[in-house]
Amino acid sequence: MTSLKAYIVTRALLVIPTVLILLTLVFFILRILPGDPIASMVGQKVPPEVLEKLREEAGLNKPLIVQYFDYLYNILHGNFGRSMIWGKRPVTAEIMDRFPATLELTIFGFVISVILGIITGSVAAFRRGSKIDASMRIYSILAYSLFIPWFGMVLQMIFGVYLKILPIGGRISPGTEPERITSLYVVDSLLTLNTSALSSALMHLFLPALTLGIVLSGAYTRLVRNNLIDVLSQDYITAYRSRGVKDRKIAIHAMKNAFIPVITLMGLQFAILLAGAVLTETTFSWPGMGTFLLERIQYRDYNSVQGAIVFYALFVALISLIVDVIYALIDPRIRY
């Protein structure tokens, strides 16, 4: 157990350089790349005085090195600056308004993709070499090649426009929002036993989560299939077979072991999930982080844009830490 603790502590410490690199990368992109972020965001038609004022608001007229340390200092103190439009609210508050929507969408998309991946992958592995195996293969490549906005719109067209059974945008019907506890509508409506909010939230969530889930399931199909085939050919499975253990029992055993490498993929997939969520949110007018980022780019709200991207970076680092810890808890071979 001590070595497990040591592993977790070491892994947590490793987050520090990763976060520093990511933050530096974001700083580099937003401040050092050729081109004035403010000017290119505002466009050419703005008088120089206004440009200068915006720059000052964003702290862009100090020397670069000072800017860099200001930037790190502020982020470490959880201060992402203030939004440069409307009420000039703190960016952190704005992000906290939008993030739960993205979290809800990605969690459901993630669950759908894992379930679909495990089903298609194990069907392919148990029927190795058959037509079903081949068609699962095609499924996995096709799913990977789907263009999220297009696929989302096709689903909107079928279920929203022709069948008229599901909404084509938004997060919940206006006026039915549940009481805010976690800001995840599904969880909140369950906690407050609010059935009308629950059904509305699930109806709105279904198509976007399905879009994300199907597109991301392809990678799991492959991995589950290949791992399962590896595990099924190992000696202990043959030993089970020779002792007459039922196929179903063997399958459960094999799946458990085949699932360990899938967890590594989950970490990587989560980043892809976040990128996919940007497109899904735009397609389904989902009020999350992705639409927040794009909206603020359009409004030239530099502080919010920077805040959103930094937030993504921190979130990605956190997820990869969590995945590694889970991996270590499950697989006793992973220790320092």
Partner: peptide, 19 residues
């Protein structure tokens, strides 16, 4: 670290700065 960052979001950030 770059690889871990969601690719489309990285591309959006760069494209937004460059125009």
């Amino acid at each position: 670290s770059m690889y871990a960052f969601p690719s489309l979001i990285l591309a959006i950030a760069i494209a937004a700065v460059l125009g």
